[in-house]
Design a protein around this nucleic acid. Sequence first.
DNA 1: AATCTTAATGCACACGTGTGCATGCGAGGA
DNA 2: TCCTCGCATGCACACGTGTGCATTAAGATT
Lengths: 346, 346
Amino acid sequence: MRVSIKDVAKAAGVSHSTVSRALANNPLIAEPTRRRIQRVAQKMGYAPNAIARGLVTRRTQTIGVIVTTIEDPFIAEVVRGIEEVAADSGYRVFLGTSHNDSAREVGLVKALREWRVDGVIVASSRVGALYQPLLKEIGAPIVLINNQNRKSPTRQKSDAGKIYSVVFDDADGGELATRYLISQGHRVIAYLGGPSDYAANRNRLAGYRRALVAAHIAFDPARVRTGNGRVESGEQVSALFLPASSPTAIFCYNDMTAIGALAALKRRGLRVPGDLSVVGFDDIPFAGYIDPPLTTIHQPKDEMGRLAMRMLLDLLDEKKVANVLVPGKLIVRESTRDISTTATRS
Amino acid sequence: MRVSIKDVAKAAGVSHSTVSRALANNPLIAEPTRRRIQRVAQKMGYAPNAIARGLVTRRTQTIGVIVTTIEDPFIAEVVRGIEEVAADSGYRVFLGTSHNDSAREVGLVKALREWRVDGVIVASSRVGALYQPLLKEIGAPIVLINNQNRKSPTRQKSDAGKIYSVVFDDADGGELATRYLISQGHRVIAYLGGPSDYAANRNRLAGYRRALVAAHIAFDPARVRTGNGRVESGEQVSALFLPASSPTAIFCYNDMTAIGALAALKRRGLRVPGDLSVVGFDDIPFAGYIDPPLTTIHQPKDEMGRLAMRMLLDLLDEKKVANVLVPGKLIVRESTRDISTTATRS
DNA sequence: AATCTTAATGCACACGTGTGCATGCGAGGA
DNA sequence: TCCTCGCATGCACACGTGTGCATTAAGATT
């Protein structure tokens, strides 16, 4: 049988209330008494029961984290950021993976509700997008990371209740990547996209167009393809070599697509960056280890996790919080090359 | 204010005990009463309080999972397996990352103890190795995955208490890889190892030697190097090219090391698998996407997670369980080549 | 008709902790 | 000496649920 606060009380010859206060370092308890009780508790191997405490304080010091799958290195890094801040603030993390399976999602939300978590962070596009009413049932503050449901997260209505979000600035990232290619002398730049119904894809494409417009380069829909965000959509590169002219650079929806593109280009006998420059997106852990090391847009994933958790802590403290739009960073590696002549430079 | 079982009882005009039983589908309650109560509860949006329930049943339906870091794709896959089985069995997962930081580890164990988790799974070498006494304090069954502390997990003493383990058969994997290289005609095979104090490294090396002995090839310590298991230890390949003779194949401690080795070989102007065959270990997600796609030993990571969770479920049911040694599988891709002449074959 | 059996429901306690309020006690001032 | 005040501690209730046992009512049995 586990030792409870009453056992300690009996052993120390005081009431359980005194023990409770002594262990909480409540100044009401006299110094010597407190020290004695703490010694006794220590010796008896007493560990407070968080369950009972949660029942009376109505605070569990626990947050729920819902993700699509923990295997996605992107999500793993976000979760790491969350866990880091949570642990430092004395919070525990309930992890649930939805696998984009409705039954699982419903079950998860129900479980979090029953466990009375203090707050919830969701990094699972579908849950965030489709289950907002369900999420609200939890009755705890909620922060979504990179949710794909709103076109513009900053336009969130106040009547959306307690649902806030941290999202990456995809449009800015797309512009960053494209502007860099242009600065390297590229004029014919293709976009090898992701799923057309993803806001991330739409926004990256929008940034791409913005950069073209700024450089007075005409946008050509024929230079844009959609994919599924995985390696196999790299095959689509073939479709980008038009009879009229071929691109000198390809901006890819994400690193996985870029990796597929590199493989497809190699099979065509084209060399990167010799014949063609390629830019990815996300900066997954492997981006620096493939051949050639990939130039890409870095998303500060752990930082986004930390931001979300800090936001949640603020919400729990009933502070005012605002949604956050996180900017990316260009990481130049070896899959891109400057093709502008020295003449145009001087 | 949240609606409790008493509120439902009042609304339905019965006692709270009846509600409790009705919602648990206890046959003691008459069919019509039960249906009526369930309807009322549904309409009032009642969600049982798992905290209160846990307090009285002394079962939390929760397990703790301690890992080094969730960013490691290897661990992520293990966690996925655990989570999968846990969810299907009605268990929730508390995730904690230790980052090999003692303070964090102690804090984690304390937290799990206070939350009265029903069981614990540890996939963090250090925690498993150094904190067994600490772990025991939790007072719940414990399953370790790939713990590095025992030389031979099957020799576990029964007095070790409730600590069980699921470990990968590294020696068998090392033998599998080496035997394959030998079957491809290689006679001079180097081992580019990992940290010398890791049991995994020692066991893979032991398997390598076993395969050599079986093929009557002399073991030469000069053909073995240690590393840190990360990409940079691939640089060590240079040390393997002895004046006397150079290897035709390299067996690497893990895929990360192999990736480093591939890069280093390329810089030396050597082609894989043309000039040299390379075999990795682990089969990380990227192993199939690098250039050339890596021949490696597959560890069924998600399966190991599932096994560990099932073992834990058995322990919770007070069934007898035995430690498990999980075998690997050779995955042949394109980093290896058969160099035996057709003459010797016929 | 009286008693027994069975089915359905309520009562009351327990789980372990936190906390408002009452209580006791000693010291100091009138 | 009595009253007051402040400090340290104990009492008792609450949190929400599960469950052994008592209770009630209705039907069956003698």
